[in-house]
Design a protein around this nucleic acid. Structure first.
Lengths: 217, 217
DNA sequence: CAACAATATGACAACTGATTCACCTTTCCG
DNA sequence: CGGAAAGGTGAATCAGTTGTCATATTGTTG
């Protein structure tokens, strides 16, 4: 069936799908469906959302969905990759002018909280993807973590942060952001982002205990 | 539509279900089904797992399931509450003899990683519950966080940790543990738990930056 | 513009899986 | 012991889904 068309544009990011759009109209429709899927998965959740919900939101017929996506799972995969790109690009832009690692962490955390607040679908789509196909989720966090790790390595080299296992730190930091975002950006905005950022910055600067750096015993 | 007007809001903290067992045999069967659900949800996931999978694993007929549980969603709720009790009890026992907060954090993190490794179902069941009914998940973490907060407040009073927003810290700490557990206890055990604990303990003692300790608020 | 390719439609076949129910079996207790 | 309550059974029902297909519309091109 759709196997006919290949050998064209297949190498972009790895996923050609049943038929990549070959027309401006097709590209537009595909994009509309993808956006509709984001909204629908975001509010109804992956499992409760039917293809019909997505196509209705996109204003196309059900059959049209299968012109561009092999099925529900594939559009989720596509979606997470897209959204991952966006967050990473956004966060990268927000911290680009930080003067040191601590400032980058502060800006990054604030930007992440804000982004999550403005794009709540990201959380749900990503987390649900974990149990649809774990590799989607792992890819996301491994991509994220890889960039993060590079930044920490640089900071270590520059003497901005203490030597230590940066890989473990990366996962700890991503976990912190994730939970803080869920609790304070999605569930309840009862604590200003600035206070959250200050609390975490204090942890980075001074630790949690009282007898930290100064004490030489 | 599954929206329905189900009698969900029944018992906040004592859900009896359709029929609480009135016999030793009944209690045993109910327990078998609950355990089977834990295993089945843990390996197949909530959505892929059918009632028939659960009853088969429990060695009972499909109809028996409904003698004790109103449906798939209710057994999940029950399960998370059960598992929550268990983790909290386990962790509490593990840190009871810690001499100060830092030691409690170290023991707690290590115990959590170990527990997750030995009970991988906990992670999946809990995380999936989030999107079946958010309140299940919130209840779990709010219960967890409440106890955690109390401990941090005590530590603050005793002067073991710096003053700061302990509620925000609690969510940051829970997030850290969660991600570290996922990555290093469930996905790949390529870093010994001791090293993870040491890395985090160092963060708590000294922070992340080299030049801490100057500014005290 | 004619012919062809790409897109779009929407009804529906095929399937999945939760829940029900009429009917047995076991246990309890006077 | 005997009958009632509790426990257990599994085939049948039933609601909801995905993915398909024959057909119609739109666009592209020689």
């Amino acid at each position: 069936m759709n196997t006919a068309v290949n050998a064209k544009q297949a190498g972009a990011a790895g996923n050609p799908g049943p038929g990549a759009p070959k027309t401006a109209r097709g590209a537009r429709t595909r994009a509309r469906i993808l956006k509709a899927a984001e909204d629908t998965f975001g509010t109804l959740g992956y499992h409760r959302a039917g293809i019909s919900d997505i196509t209705r939101a996109a204003g196309v017929a059900q059959g049209t969905f299968y012109t561009y996506f092999a099925g529900k799972e594939e559009i989720l995969r596509e979606l997470v990759r897209d959204m991952g790109h966006q967050v990473r690009a956004h966060l990268a832009a927000e911290i680009v002018d930080a003067r040191d690692r601590l400032e980058a962490e502060e800006k990054g955390l604030r930007a992440f909280l804000q982004y999550l607040f403005e794009n709540p679908s990201l959380y749900r789509v990503l987390q649900e993807a974990q149990f649809v196909d774990e590799s989607i989720y792992r890819d996301y966090y491994e991509a994220f973590g890889k960039g993060y790790l590079r930044m920490l390595a640089n900071a270590t080299r520059k003497g901005e942060i203490r030597a230590g296992n940066n890989e473990v730190r990366v996962w700890a930091l991503m976990g912190m952001s994730n939970f803080l975002g869920l609790r304070y950006a999605l569930w309840e905005r009862d604590v200003p982002f600035d206070e959250i950022v200050d609390t975490i910055a204090d942890l980075f600067r001074n630790g949690l205990t009282l007898d930290g750096k100064e004490k030489a015993s």
